[in-house]
Measured scan of single mutants.
Amino acid sequence: LRQRHVACLARSERGLGFSIAGGKGSTPYRAGDAGIFVSRIAEGGAAHRAGTLQVGDRVLSINGVDVTEARHDHAVSLLTAASPTIALLLEREAGGP
């Protein structure tokens, strides 16, 4: 079961505080899956403080732009754009009992 949710992050002077992996033109985060995933969350960064991202979340869109088939460098450029806030649509595998 997959759950979707939106995370809104305000960029700090240190950026957004998370890294992505995967996407076309880069090493897959999961074998056989060209999706883009949250690969790291920086301690004390914007994403960590927001508490809405988890490592392993699939990134579906960035500020309304679909990145499900995107190249890695395109997703990075969307994240590093000048916008002071970033809205992410994420998909998470629902774990637990």
Score class of each variant (00 low, 15 high):
residue 23 G to C: 00
residue 67 V to Y: 02
residue 2 R to M: 08
residue 16 L to A: 07
residue 18 F to W: 02
residue 71 R to L: 07
residue 17 G to L: 01
residue 70 A to T: 10
residue 93 E to G: 09
residue 81 A to M: 11
residue 24 K to G: 13
residue 1 L to M: 15
residue 32 G to M: 07
residue 93 E to I: 08
residue 73 D to W: 05
residue 60 L to K: 03
residue 86 I to E: 02
residue 72 H to Q: 12
residue 89 L to V: 15
residue 41 I to D: 03
residue 45 G to N: 08
residue 66 D to F: 01
residue 82 A to Y: 11
residue 87 A to Y: 13
residue 83 S to N: 14
residue 40 R to L: 10
residue 32 G to P: 05
residue 79 L to A: 02
residue 12 S to R: 09
residue 39 S to F: 01
residue 96 G to W: 09
residue 52 T to N: 14
residue 82 A to Q: 14
residue 83 S to T: 12
residue 13 E to M: 05
residue 22 G to V: 01
residue 22 G to C: 03
residue 17 G to P: 06
residue 48 H to K: 09
residue 87 A to D: 15
residue 92 R to W: 00
residue 87 A to E: 15
residue 57 D to G: 02
residue 16 L to V: 11
residue 1 L to V: 14
residue 8 C to W: 12
residue 79 L to T: 02
residue 79 L to P: 01
residue 76 V to H: 10
residue 44 G to S: 07
residue 70 A to G: 09
residue 25 G to M: 05
residue 51 G to C: 04
residue 71 R to V: 06
residue 14 R to M: 08
residue 36 I to Y: 02
residue 29 Y to P: 05
residue 4 R to W: 04
residue 41 I to M: 05
residue 73 D to E: 14
residue 63 N to Y: 03
residue 14 R to I: 09
residue 47 A to R: 04
residue 6 V to E: 12
residue 65 V to C: 15
residue 71 R to T: 15
residue 71 R to G: 11
residue 17 G to N: 03
residue 61 S to H: 09
residue 87 A to Q: 15
residue 78 L to I: 07
residue 76 V to G: 04
residue 87 A to P: 04
residue 69 E to R: 11
residue 37 F to D: 03
residue 31 A to S: 15
residue 76 V to A: 10
residue 89 L to E: 15
residue 9 L to Y: 07
residue 81 A to W: 06
residue 64 G to K: 06
residue 40 R to Q: 15
residue 59 V to K: 01
residue 50 A to K: 07
residue 29 Y to C: 06
residue 37 F to Q: 01
residue 51 G to L: 04
residue 10 A to T: 13
residue 93 E to Q: 10
residue 46 A to V: 11
residue 46 A to F: 07
residue 96 G to E: 14
residue 25 G to A: 05
residue 1 L to E: 14
residue 69 E to T: 12
residue 39 S to R: 04
residue 76 V to K: 12
residue 48 H to M: 15
residue 95 G to V: 13
residue 77 S to E: 14
residue 50 A to H: 08
residue 61 S to D: 05
residue 2 R to L: 06
residue 94 A to E: 15
residue 63 N to A: 05
residue 87 A to G: 10
residue 82 A to E: 12
residue 95 G to W: 09
residue 92 R to T: 04
residue 42 A to G: 08
residue 60 L to P: 01
residue 63 N to L: 00
residue 61 S to F: 07
residue 87 A to I: 12
residue 33 D to C: 12
residue 15 G to Y: 04
residue 48 H to R: 07
residue 12 S to D: 15
residue 36 I to V: 08
residue 46 A to L: 09
residue 21 A to S: 14
residue 89 L to I: 12
residue 32 G to K: 07
residue 1 L to D: 10
residue 50 A to E: 15
residue 62 I to V: 08
residue 40 R to V: 10
residue 35 G to W: 03
residue 64 G to Y: 04
residue 44 G to V: 06
residue 36 I to D: 03
residue 31 A to P: 15
residue 75 A to H: 03
residue 76 V to E: 11
residue 97 P to D: 12
residue 66 D to L: 04
residue 59 V to T: 01
residue 31 A to M: 14
residue 41 I to R: 01
residue 73 D to Y: 06
residue 54 Q to E: 12
residue 52 T to S: 13
residue 52 T to L: 11
residue 66 D to I: 04
residue 29 Y to N: 05
residue 93 E to K: 10
residue 80 T to K: 15
residue 53 L to Q: 01
residue 10 A to E: 13
